[in-house]
């Protein structure tokens, strides 16, 4: 039974690899080519939004094709709802969001896929409350990929120590800020310019610092208690083990 399920998981991860490679190496370059040749103009803002959305597709497709159990769906929904409620609770401090931390904690406990889905779902759901905008696809992808990275690190068992959590929190805060600035810059010049990117980044430094602080604070406070609860649920009900 165990062997069978790991074999199945293998097939799924191989399928996902093929599928994501097709998207990354075929579909995205074609779209870039269309952007460069047919529109022969600097329209990277639209193209970049489409590419970021497409980058999320492999994760969604593999989740969909796996026919997830009700328990997995509910756990991801609970963690996303907690991060959305947390974002709402701290809305009065700009940029102070627990979303990254809770996504990362889910990733540590349940693996890369659950981490990605929690991050992406949190972005969509919280923007349903706070308003969608051109930033939604970027938030989806950034939070998703941060959860994904957290999942990979967690499976290696590296995230038990406080120092690892602090390093991850700083990294995640800076990466979030970097990714969210890209759209501002691209939409302004039509194409990506390092000069403007540096300016956008330097004006965003206060926000970056707040991102980093909130990530580190929430990770240090929440990682152990929530992590233990998730482990307990996992052991008690035997779920999300692949």
């Amino acid at each position: 039974m165990q062997a069978q399920s790991t074999a199945r998981a293998d097939i799924y991860s191989r399928k996902r690899l093929i599928f994501s490679s097709i998207i990354i190496f075929v579909v995205i370059p074609i779209i870039m080519l269309i952007g460069v040749t047919i529109f022969n103009d600097r329209k990277y803002n639209l193209i970049s939004m489409i590419i970021v959305l497409l980058a999320c597709v492999p994760f969604f497709v593999s989740f969909e094709r796996r026919k997830p159990q009700a328990r997995e769906i509910l756990t991801i929904a609970v963690m996303s709802a907690i991060s959305v409620a947390g974002r709402a609770a701290f809305i009065w401090i700009p940029a102070f969001k627990p979303v990254t931390a809770i996504t990362a904690i889910t990733g540590f406990a349940f693996g890369a896929e659950a981490g990605f889905l929690t991050g992406a779902t949190s972005a969509i759901a919280s923007n349903i409350f706070f308003g969608q905008g051109p930033w939604t696809p970027f938030q989806m992808f950034t939070w998703g990929i941060l959860g994904f990275i957290a999942g990979l690190l967690g499976q290696k068992g590296w995230m038990k120590s406080k120092i690892a959590l602090i390093i991850y929190g700083v990294f995640a805060g800076i990466m979030y800020s970097f990714c969210m600035d890209i759209w501002t810059v691209i939409s302004y010049d039509g194409l990506f310019s390092w000069k403007r990117y540096l300016i956008a980044m330097s004006t965003a430094i206060p926000f970056t610092i707040v991102y980093v602080i909130s990530n580190v604070v929430f990770l240090l406070v929440l990682a152990k208690p929530i992590g233990e609860k998730l482990e307990r649920i996992k052991v008690k009900y035997g779920m999300l083990n692949n």
Partner: peptide
């Protein structure tokens, strides 16, 4: 499946 996750999330927030 993903739409179900999102709709559950939206329902859970006011519940929490």
């Amino acid at each position: 499946a993903l739409a179900l996750v999102i709709s559950l999330t939206l329902r859970l927030v006011p519940r929490f």
